[in-house]
Design a protein around this nucleic acid. Structure first.
Lengths: 199, 199
DNA sequence: AGCGTTGATGACAGCAACTGACATCACAGG
DNA sequence: CCTGTGATGTCAGTTGCTGTCATCAACGCT
């Protein structure tokens, strides 16, 4: 019944293991069962066998439960952009990172779907999602600047890449048939290029 | 001392006029003086000569004070896109709307600057700003769809337009010299087109 | 085995954002 | 002058979130 998989690299020693994971699981379940706003932090803690106070030691706020681990995504994104060939065009470097990320997500589609359903049902969670994406965009822009890309090109390339990711991701989780995220990204990027083409 | 300008088209009849405007002014002052988080709704209401409860009758929450009137922006944006020539490319229709909006902002640069300073200093306010921009993007995408643009092109064009606006706006308020917003938008749009160009 | 250290957790008090319910007041129209 | 209407005031309550201090389980050390 209890979660035995160690998800994080921290040392989990005392009491029942993986308090953070239990809290995340409990929160997710409750958000699905009765909605985000109708769920109280006390209820989450209770289901996880912990205290409300402990919840806030692991997650900055009630929304953050759904966004834990985004830092790794950002690092992976940034490092892929950073390690692109020197002669790669900015948007191509970003596109490479998009595809690297896409393969990571491919195996977790069911999880992504339920998660996104919860987020799409609550404006507060959408706000949090948007600022996470904006943080990603900023990090990418900074990386592009390190590669010698000037402003505003760096920021615009980063934002364009995030837009492609965002639109493609929504289509991926919403799709009836099981098309691969990478493919949807490729096609979305092509659509962006078409739409911004001169003449 | 009291605000006499009627800012909204509602009928302001009883007590001191323009309660909503007084609340907005008081909130803005306090956010600048001591920061957003350090300001309490009770303090805002007190400065405006009203009650905390009344504040929440005019603004859904503490953040919304800084975003009142965004609906008009959205309508103006959407209608400009909708009324673009039938043969105009999607991104050109959006660009036309961007320039229409730009001229509206031009006269209110000082206000925009202090407002943006407050927003940039607080993550919660940035979240709200981002979801407002996302709402704009959705509305534009819907309008483009009405004009016969397919998905994902419609959403991507809308997001690209919003990205241009966002980046250009930040540069406009941050600029030492007083360059026109419309000009910065033109140049940002050109940069986006360059960056997304094939080959 | 005993003991102190360490880090996670519990217990408790408190603030501030936000909401619902009901009373009250000022004005408009009759 | 009277009455309805809409904006405001009053009050109680819930919940998210924080600071502070006590407590507990494991680990290392002797």
């Amino acid at each position: 019944m209890s979660v035995t998989v160690i998800l994080y690299d921290r040392v989990m020693t005392r009491w029942e293991p993986d308090a953070r994971g239990r809290l995340q699981l409990a929160a997710m379940e409750l958000y699905v069962e009765r909605g985000f706003e109708q769920t109280t932090v006390a209820e989450i803690a209770e289901r996880a066998g912990l205290t409300e106070r402990t919840f806030f030691r692991h997650y900055a706020d009630k929304r953050e439960v759904l966004f834990f681990g985004q830092d790794e995504l950002k690092e992976r994104f940034v490092s892929t952009v950073a390690h692109a060939p020197d002669d790669a065009a900015p948007l191509d470097a970003v596109a490479a990172a998009l595809h690297a990320i896409a393969t990571d997500f491919e195996s977790r589609r069911p999880w992504s779907q339920t998660r996104q359903t919860v987020i799409n049902a609550n404006p507060g969670l959408q706000e949090r999602e948007l600022i996470k994406l904006a943080g990603l965009s900023s990090a990418i822009a900074a990386t592009l600047r390190d590669r010698g890309v000037d402003e505003p090109a760096a920021s615009l390339t980063a934002e364009a890449g995030i837009s492609v990711f965002h639109v493609a991701f929504q289509r991926w989780v919403a799709a009836d048939n099981t098309r691969e995220l990478a493919q949807i990204i490729t096609e979305s990027l092509a659509a962006l290029r078409t739409v911004t083409a001169n003449g």
